[in-house]
């Protein structure tokens, strides 16, 4: 059943500089995770995307980007599903 989702996760993981990927449902339950993304962070990731949606609830959900010195975490919500991608900053 989750073959399609696994395929998408594989595809994301094969993108350069990506070292983790996580997909969760609206309750914060992890649907898929790969690489450095930990299953336990699904709840927090969904909470962050929900919080960001509250800023302008009438617009479509925004993309949230959290940056450290050398890593990036991108969070995007689509319907009830939230996806997160953990990336290494590429050499500029």
């Amino acid at each position: 059943m989750e073959k399609e989702l696994d395929k998408v996760v594989e595809e994301i993981m094969s993108t350069p500089n990506v070292n983790g990927c996580l997909v969760a449902d609206h309750q914060g339950l992890c649907l898929a995770s790969k690489g450095s993304a930990h299953v336990d962070s699904a709840g927090i990731i969904v909470a962050i995307s929900e919080q960001a949606c509250k800023i302008q609830p009438n617009l479509k959900p925004p993309t949230v980007c959290l940056e450290t010195d050398n890593k990036i975490c991108l969070i995007q919500r689509h319907g009830t599903i939230t996806g997160a991608i953990f990336k290494q900053k590429g050499a500029a």
Binding site: H38, V64, C65, E67
Partner: peptide, 28 residues
């Protein structure tokens, strides 16, 4: 609230010494 949430994100992907320095929220 968003900042306090982001402090507790993935301890595996981001080590304890790695604090976020910037958050961006992008709409169309």
């Amino acid at each position: 609230d968003l900042i306090s949430l982001s402090n507790s994100i993935d301890p595996v992907a981001f080590g304890p010494e790695e604090k976020f320095k910037k958050i961006s929220i992008t709409y169309d």
